[in-house]
Amino acid sequence: MKKLLAGLAVAVGLALGAGAAQAEQVKIGFSPEAYPPFWSQDASGSWGGWEVEIINAICAEQKLDCVLTPIPWDGLIPALGTKKIDAIMNSMSITDERKKTIDFSDKYYNTPTAVIGSKDAKFDATPEGLKGKIIGVQVSTVHAAYAKKHFTEAAEIKEYQTQDEANQDLTAGRIDATQADSIALDAFLKSDAGKACCDMKGYVAPDDEVLGPGVGAGVRKDDAALKDKLNAGIKAIRDNGKYAEITKKYFDFDVYGAEGQTN
């Protein structure tokens, strides 16, 4: 029954979309900060990166007129509630905690979580290794939640507004380690500042309850139509090779992770 209703909603949505003279506008919320290679800003101030291209591909597939709307990271979920934006596509992991408030599309990528730290110190990405260390994380991320749950014997867990600032304080030596998405951290380690100071300490032990099954698009709970469209779009670009084409430009492996997980 539910599936039928959802299918009906898609049909209605598509009919409306096709019927309207122009595609409907969907405001995609993102936090205006560099998160390479997913998000980066060129000199003129416009945004590019893997996730931006994926968003554009999904929107083109579903004939949605997507507008990127900058909102600070910790304001994204409230902004979705107040209809300032219609969807969040900003490397936001699907978690049970967030699902209490918003709904998610299927995942569109999933990469492991890692810890990096100063070259001078030798330690692992384990609770024992991080004992007594100062760890920096970005506020209200799965990484902040994970660090608070698992690295309880760390000296301090510092929360930053952006991952950029956490990396900055790692190079300044104010924190010993930072935990984040492995690809984002890898991009930092390849930069000049990252090369000089830090190296990879390893991946953290999995915890699906906190880290979730991957990254999806956040939508309002009552907005099943948009959710279905985004799901269809993700599936379509996975099937028609567009996803692989974009991914090849940025990575030498498939960032989608394990197949077959739906939400």
């Binding site: 600032e165 900055q168 304080d169 190079t171 300044a172 030596g173 104010r174 500042a193 000089a196 100071c197």
Partner: peptide
Amino acid sequence: YFGLGALFP
């Protein structure tokens, strides 16, 4: 905070 911090390395 950040400006001076960037000079530390």
